[in-house]
Design a protein around this nucleic acid. Structure first.
Lengths: 93, 93
DNA sequence: TCGATATATTGAAATATATCAATGTATTAT
DNA sequence: ATAATACATTGATATATTTCAATATATCGA
């Protein structure tokens, strides 16, 4: 059984790195990007960006859909909304 | 100049540890606690809990008001609200 | 098929974080 | 004044995270 803390922590961890937040914001602004696009935004090596995207996908914040040799990445707005609501609710008395 | 990423990252970092989220939730539930209360909730050493509270205070999520030898800790709801709104808005296109 | 492109994985190094025991500081009670 | 209480700080260790180079895998185009 996963507690609400676990859920909050997992997503907060994903949001706790500047590069990842930048990538997330860029995707949100542009609707969708490929990993290559994200590399340009992050200005870091390809493996590093690949790792960051994995963290965001694992947290549920991003959707990654393979399309040929590209991977199309979009923001999972549902999960983001869930997160902000969970943080709000669980800190309301 | 601090970007919105910086702000999100700082607070997300504070929320990216299970102990800190647990402490935050406990304070929210009870209205206010002392550091000693937080130690009981966390079941960790006093210095460790002191460190965690410091991280939360530095992120702006907690208010700490000295009262005699106790420190009264409350949740800074404004900052929490700011955070959830900033996350929501900055990921809306 | 072969080379090029897009992304993932592995292994290693550097840095950051969580944790505790020991100690310091401030405040209250006796 | 002194002892006890509440909390903070320091220094050390263990673990986690970030990053890259090297390499692997999958797909497309010629």
């Amino acid at each position: 059984m996963k507690t609400s803390e676990d859920h909050i922590v997992k997503i907060a961890k994903a949001l706790s790195d500047k590069t990842r937040v930048r990538i997330l914001q860029d995707i949100a602004k542009r609707g969708s990007v490929t990993c290559g696009d994200a590399i340009n935004v992050a200005c870091l090596s390809q493996p590093t960006v690949s790792h960051h995207i994995k963290v965001l996908v694992d947290a549920g914040l991003l959707n990654a859909d393979k399309n040929g040799r590209h991977v199309i990445i979009t923001v999972n707005k549902e999960v983001l909304k869930e997160f902000t609501e969970l943080v709000s609710v669980s800190t309301k008395r």
